[in-house]
Design a protein around this nucleic acid. Structure first.
Length: 286
DNA sequence: CCCCAGGCGACTC
DNA sequence: GAGTCGCATGGG
């Protein structure tokens, strides 16, 4: 991918491997919002504004080094896509979500976000996280940083209830008490099986959430989070058994795509959600 | 009223 | 170990 880095911006031309809409709306990140003709995205204490006009994408930000890493600029997505283009459904998904990239996000932010995500819908997850940051994150001008672990340890269960976390509130409190910087760091170098086992020990973290944490928080791309949408993909496009548990479906896709499994999952998830949304709209409009 | 949302924990057997 | 079930909460 070709790009130029300036003092406070990164500029890309004809970037077929970078589409900010695809990146933000494929379910890996919740702290972003639509602004005039672009998006604003928040990561830890940083903020970026991304605009796309014709063939030019511009990332305005406070720290270009941070966001080059965050947007995964060192990975060759053209190569990954060529390796994944093996079936009709993948071909369609790769075309629809051609500009998807897996973000290098902060593990703590991802752990909290995906505990909240369980059996929840995206608008509500976004709202809960926004209110958590507003109350416990450091104010950075007109936005808020994600709370530090130290700050999170002071959040009472009642507050998580107040911001709409529902029955996940006690899970969050319990998990935050279990977390330490050392634990979070230790997972980077841990064997994937072991890391997954450690994450599942956390309250509110099962197999699916653990896979999301590994993929989005630790960039472990040889996992395949299986949720309700992916289940539909498996049944409808891979001739799968609808009674098969999520863990087995996940294993199936990892055996199929190996270190590209996480990427495949994002393309398929984005594809299925968009298609389903479109179908609902069509029904509504007659 | 129903069903669903990026599932998990507790409880069975 | 696999199979049920309840779960807060808001939207369609």
């Amino acid at each position: 991918m070709e790009y130029k880095v300036y003092k406070n911006k990164i500029v890309m031309q004809n970037s077929s491997e970078f589409d900010i809409k695809h990146i933000l709306e494929c379910g890996q990140v919740f702290r972003y919002k639509v602004v005039e003709s672009g998006y604003e995205v928040y990561a830890l204490e940083h903020k970026a504004r991304v605009y796309c006009q014709k063939d030019t994408t511009t990332i305005f930000c406070d720290d270009t080094t941070f966001f080059q890493k965050y947007f995964d600029f060192d990975t060759d997505y053209a190569k990954i896509k060529s390796e994944l283009r093996d079936t009709e459904i993948l071909e369609n998904a790769l075309e629809l979500g051609s500009g998807i990239r897996i973000l290098r996000q902060d593990p703590l932010e991802i752990i909290i976000s995906f505990i909240i995500s369980a059996n929840n819908n995206i608008p509500r997850i976004k709202k809960s996280l926004e209110r958590l940051c507003e109350r416990y994150g450091v104010k950075k001008g007109e936005y808020y940083a994600f709370p530090t672990l130290q700050k999170l340890k002071k959040v009472p269960e009642a507050f998580f209830l107040e911001i709409g976390c529902g029955y996940r509130a006690p899970y969050l409190v319990k998990t935050i008490q279990m977390l330490s910087e050392k634990f979070i760091q230790s997972l980077y170098s841990m064997d994937i099986i072991e890391a997954r086992k450690e994450l599942i020990k956390l309250s509110g973290v099962g197999g699916k959430v653990a896979d999301c944490i590994l993929l989005f928080g630790y960039y472990r791309t040889n996992v395949f989070p299986c949720d309700t949408w992916i289940k539909k993909v498996y049944v409808q496009h891979f001739n799968g058994d609808c009674k098969l548990p999520a863990g087995k479906i996940s294993e199936y896709f990892v055996s199929l795509y190996g270190n590209n499994a996480g990427f495949a999952q994002q393309y398929l998830y984005y594809y299925k959600r968009l298609k389903e949304k479109k179908k609902v709209k069509e029904i509504k409009n007659g």
